[in-house]
Amino acid sequence: MADSEHKYHHQKEKANALSTAVDMFVSQLRTMALVLKHTFTKADTVEYPEQKPYLAPRYRGRIVLTRDPDGEERCVGCNLCAAACPVDCIALQQTIDDDGRKRADFFRINFSRCILCGFCEEACPTYAIQLTPDIELAEYERQNLVYEKEHLLISGVGKYPDYSFYRHSGIEVNINGERKAKGGAEQEKSPVNIKGLMP
């Protein structure tokens, strides 16, 4: 019994070896046939300089500084973007205007360091700094990759057309020559007298 079983297994193994060999051969032919089919498949290539690839609106490309709907700079120079930047490519200095508005005195992004991670955009409390779907940043000279504020600032509002930081914030400031007192902003209550006894 044991002997015949052993024999049976041996024969089965032999048959398996042959069928494995055939299977392997057929598998190779099948692979080649499948690859050959691709002769008639359209190439996925986008021929770049002539044909631009589609970049989504939220693509993380060249960084810009946007303005609010009133046409004023959104950036308040808070330095959060520079702090968030993992490669320290952002440098800026805050100043305060006579009307109480804060803005960046200078704003500098070194695009030869920038990794276009978008952390600055996430950190920005005023939606000022935004990444755009533009990837054509190549320059012949390295120095030209350092963008100053005048290169970064655009005239539009970017991805958030209605947002204006100063209209929402409780800072005393001039908007379009019109003085906005503390507590005068949209959806803002007047300041609470913390020393008063009334509820």
Partner: peptide, 8 residues
């Protein structure tokens, strides 16, 4: 090879 790998 390009054609067969769906490239140009």
């Amino acid at each position: 090879i390009g054609i067969w790998q769906d490239r140009l």
